[in-house]
Simulated assay, not measured.
Amino acid sequence: MSHGPSGSSASNDGDSTNRRTPAFPLLSAITLITMLAIGYSALHDDGVRECGPRQVPEEAFSLIDDIHSNSPLPYPATDGGHFGNYENELPQEHSNYYREYTVPTPGRTGRGERRLVTGGGTPQDPDVYYYTWDHYESFCEIPESDVE
């Protein structure tokens, strides 16, 4: 009996005990369930996933409100400064497109790892908002409807 690339039997004799099921559907299902559990949703054309409803902490939304109202920021020496996108995790833009802000972490002294990166527009009205919880290792895009 010959076997094809998937490992399934070429014979159609009704005996399914020797047939192997590819692992891909199971892995895909596990990946999807994991992504939904942590709040991921659609992948944008720019390759950055949209943040899910439980993925962005309330402190990030408070920071967005402060940015919009031009209120004092938690770390004025760094907040609103240039973000270089040196990791290339965000879409390629001109050098002054991105700005970074520290998202406060309750109970932590210092800046921590959470950041908000905005892009385009003006400092008080950016075109796009990205959140990173792991100091620029990964990002998700905050939906525009969540920041209005």
Rank of each mutant, 00 (worst) to 15 (best):
D79Q: 06
Q124I: 15
H82G: 09
T78R: 12
T109D: 14
G112S: 09
E100W: 05
T78E: 14
G112L: 04
Q92Y: 00
V117C: 04
E113P: 07
T102Y: 02
E87W: 01
S69F: 09
E100V: 03
A77P: 05
Y86M: 09
L90W: 01
G107F: 07
N70E: 15
Y98L: 03
H94I: 13
G112P: 06
T78H: 10
H94F: 13
E89C: 12
Y97G: 04
T105E: 14
Q92D: 14
P106F: 11
N70L: 14
S95D: 15
S71P: 00
L116D: 08
P91Y: 05
G119P: 08
Y101T: 07
R108H: 12
R108P: 01
T109W: 11
E93K: 15
L90M: 04
Y86V: 11
A77L: 13
H82C: 08
E89V: 13
G112I: 07
G112D: 10
P74A: 12
V128S: 02
V103T: 05
Y98P: 08
G84F: 06
R114S: 11
T109A: 11
E89L: 14
S69E: 15
E100K: 09
T78D: 13
Y75D: 03
G119W: 00
G119T: 10
P126V: 08
R115N: 09
G110W: 08
R99G: 02
E93N: 13
R114L: 09
F83T: 08
Y86W: 07
R111W: 04
Y130W: 08
Q124A: 14
G84S: 12
P104A: 05
R108D: 05
A77Q: 13
T109K: 12
E93R: 15
G81Q: 10
G110Y: 03
E113L: 13
R111V: 10
S71M: 14
P91I: 11
P76W: 08
R115F: 07
Y86G: 14
T118M: 02
L73G: 04
E100F: 01
T105H: 06
Y75I: 12
P76M: 06
T118E: 00
Y130F: 11
L73M: 07
H68C: 02
S69M: 13
D134W: 02
E113Y: 12
T102Q: 05
T105L: 05
E87N: 06
Y97V: 08
P104Q: 12
Y129E: 00
P91C: 02
L90K: 03
Y129N: 07
